[in-house]
């Protein structure tokens, strides 16, 4: 009767291996999705957007850092990965960064002065709230995902044969932001 018991163990082991492999494959597939690519490209451009804010120095928090919020809906792990990337940059205009990962509803609780908000997940249900927060607190909001700029986010990316920053001029004006004309020259403007 030992043989069947061993056979069960082997089968269970094989099943676990297959499950593990399947999860890895899914992870790989997810890491290579167009949205993830936009997320990475957006994260690469986000610091230049922050640096283009002529009022960035006034947005230092009490701790002397620029507080950046990365917003997620249900995938904090991905937001954390992008936060790590931003932490590696460390400074904008020689001002140290403090990167936080949070959900949209946490924006209201957080009373600290924010220099920028970065959306890490597409189709964020609370996007209007984020837009509203950006406008009322004069904070740069940035989303690399398609369509979010049109919904009021102040910055994003324009992907054609090249990747350019995209600026929502009405939102920027409504938020009281001041972006360098130099930056606006190379940006794709949404009006």
């Amino acid at each position: 009767m030992k043989l069947p018991t061993n056979l069960h163990k082997v089968s269970f082991g094989l099943f676990l291996c297959l499950l593990l492999q399947l999860m890895c494959c899914l992870e790989l597939m997810a890491s290579d999705s167009p949205e993830l690519r936009r997320l990475r490209a957006g994260m690469d451009l986000f610091p230049s957007f922050l640096a283009a804010d002529t009022q960035i120095r006034q947005k230092k928090a009490e701790d002397g850092k620029l507080h950046i919020a990365l917003i997620y809906n249900d995938n904090p792990r991905r937001a954390e990965q992008q936060a790590e990337h931003l932490r590696q940059i460390g400074k904008i205009k020689n001002i140290p960064l403090k990167v936080q990962v949070m959900r949209p509803q946490d924006l209201r609780k957080n009373n600290e002065l924010l220099a920028g908000i970065f959306i890490t997940q597409p189709h964020l249900p609370q996007l209007p709230k984020v837009v509203h927060h950006g406008k009322t607190h004069s904070v740069i909001t940035f989303s690399p995902f398609n369509g979010d700029v049109a919904q009021g986010i102040s910055g994003g990316i324009s992907v054609t044969a090249r990747i350019l920053p995209k600026v929502n001029i009405p939102t920027v004006k409504a938020s009281g932001l001041r972006i360098k004309p130099f930056f606006l020259r190379i940006a794709s403007l949404y009006e």
């Binding site: 400074k91 090249r162 130099f182 190379i186």
Partner: peptide, 16 residues
């Protein structure tokens, strides 16, 4: 063609 030049480290726009 205008190509933006970003800093590889700070990602800041350096020029065009």
């Amino acid at each position: 063609i205008d190509i933006p030049l970003y800093s590889p480290t700070s990602k800041e726009l350096l020029g065009i």
